[in-house]
Design a protein around this nucleic acid. Structure first.
Lengths: 208, 208, 208, 208
DNA sequence: TATGAATGAGCCTTCATTCAT
DNA sequence: AATGAATGAAGGCTCATTCAT
């Protein structure tokens, strides 16, 4: 349905991969996200991918290696989705928050499997040792938000407050939407929803 | 066959249970929380519990049955921990929020394994069909918070706002603390932390 | 045909073993001896033993564990077969050599599989790390023969000679018979053959 | 398909062979000798040889074909090493024995891998059907020694004795040195050692 | 000649589960 | 209430081998 890669002329990450490798990682993404790592067998994956068992070990070194690979990819994509340098600097802090949250919600709705995988990895504790640090992702997002808050404080939009506390509160709120998308199967309109979130929180952030 | 729950009208969940059953469910709780359902074998559990394999099938019907049992227990305990009828009605809404959040944080720190299990179940998607509805827990907590907010609005403490939006924002913030406890191994002082959370949010909730 | 265990009232090594364990190790002995470790699959073994796969892992920990077990057993039995305290001290050194060699040849003919296994392990280099030291067996046999030679020298039967050199020569000659039994499928009458061996060595080649 | 051997009437076995073929057979020799046939994978071989999988099937027909090839080469080289036409006819029988044994010991020390391979094949029973007959090698060596003994008898150096019995005794003794070289990692000085062997056997054990 | 990619069969091992006692 | 022994199914992984280029 959504393949998250179609934006054509991106900087080439590892473009022109073998279609078999692609099929495996794509099937694995869906199955791992749906059933979890331990509940997904390599045979399930290759059946879904329409290839044979040894291909998994040819392209990835092991089941864990495959898992790490798709988790790393998902993590990179998630981080890109909220990268603030994609938001114009001319906006107000409020607007930049709205934009960031909206694109985050949009990403989560467009890439459910990737996000599900990341959340599983975050809470399941069965992280493969060589996978990307989920905590690292978390912290990076916190820093991105904190930067916006900081600039809002400096510009006088926001009152003086603990930006770490507030950033993590925002992360929590965003996380909650992810949960509602993934588990509750709710659907949100990213722009409107992000405005409501920010408005709610802003009534406390704004300098009145 | 399986006598998991039948001791009729007892409230205290594990009064006078067989010590073997106790040992199994306690070992399983730790292992499931640590390694996940699929990564924990029944043999691991009985080894840790110091008993033998058929005992699992005697007391619980299957691995899934055991999982459901401890998940149900964990869920029940979590819900108890935020039950608002434990908070005196004479308090302000702010105070009741603080109290609720503090006891939630306290519970999470005191029962890491149970909470880890619930979070896994929430996001892992491998819920056993007969387990407790994690979504049900979620909604119940939302309702508890919404009730407090509603009473705050009625008493004039809070401005008119969408109590569902705000409740879920609060749930998200609380959830975020759980993540930091479970995954980041951070430690919080429940009372102080809940005050900071509520203060941050209240500056937007209060009628200024 | 020959099961090497029938001498009833021996000191109990691990008597009254499970018949399943017995069947597995007996089937494994034959197959390992016939085809080698790497060419024998666990499935082959359980098929021949008339049991199921997990039983191998129940009684022995792994394929290697099973191999080590039967190798250790074979080694112990071989050493017993030449134990010199079974030979009366009243005999001449020549007679004791004859007796020892005869019983060695007899053992090898009666326990071809065990001996084949030991020779494989000796030369194949794929010894499992926890198996019995084949070199240890070798050295023990050398010492047994050296002791006989030494007593022959002391009693004046034998000339002064390097007993280690001579012991190892004898071992080599005996080993050669093993090879002819195992590989060449030759058959020997132990007593007669041992007399011919000892006579040759005792008199030497030279025309005196 | 397989061009393993067809270069007609060449004597020197690897003159003008493809370097890739050479690399494969040389890597295979070491790995087979070290780990055995079943424990060595074709991938191991090509990795060590620095080439790719299909090259094995191009130059040799199969893993078994490769094994046969290097076994045949090793056998040929071993037989050459004891060829009596390399020993001058003017020597005494004792001297010729010494020379033969010395060159055998020398060969074994200089070509451990080849000899290890032959011994494995001798006792492991997993000879590929089209490989060289190890028994044939054995018998040829016996005949070479028997010829020397026979000439010694005719010249009056040796007493009348069963030359087959004695030849095989000598083979056994030599074999034992091989085992000590291969397994015990002992080192011998070929000339001295062969003299001690021959002296022991020539004089015999008895006190005359 | 040489290779990257692919395959079917089989490997050793462990799983959740049950039976007889 | 508890156990040692047993099982069918499935697990992850590697094997020798071949195809298309």
């Amino acid at each position: 349905m959504c393949n998250g890669e179609e934006n054509s002329s991106e900087r080439l990450p590892d473009r022109q991969e073998s279609p078999v490798k692609e099929a495996i990682s794509s099937a694995a993404l869906e199955l791992f996200a749906q059933n979890g790592f331990g509940q997904t067998s390599v045979r399930d994956i290759v059946n879904k991918a329409g290839t044979t068992l040894p291909m998994v070990y040819y392209y990835f070194d092991s089941k864990q290696g495959l898992y790490s690979y798709i988790l790393r990819q998902a993590a990179a994509r998630l981080l890109d989705s909220t990268d603030p340098d994609q938001t114009r600097k001319s906006l107000t802090a409020i607007e930049r928050l709205e934009t960031g949250i909206a694109s985050f919600i949009h990403f989560c709705q467009a890439n459910e499997a990737e996000v599900q995988l990341i959340f599983q990895a975050w809470f399941a504790g069965d992280l493969p040792p060589d996978g990307p640090s989920i905590i690292g992702i978390y912290e990076k997002m916190v820093r991105q938000i904190a930067a916006i808050l900081q600039s809002g404080i400096e510009s006088g939009e926001f009152r003086e407050l603990d930006i770490w506390e507030a950033s993590q509160a925002l992360i929590g709120i965003m996380t909650n939407y992810v949960a509602r998308i993934l588990v509750g199967n709710e659907a949100f309109r990213p722009v409107e929803q992000s405005q409501r979130i920010v408005e709610l929180l802003a009534k406390g952030l704004e300098n009145t």
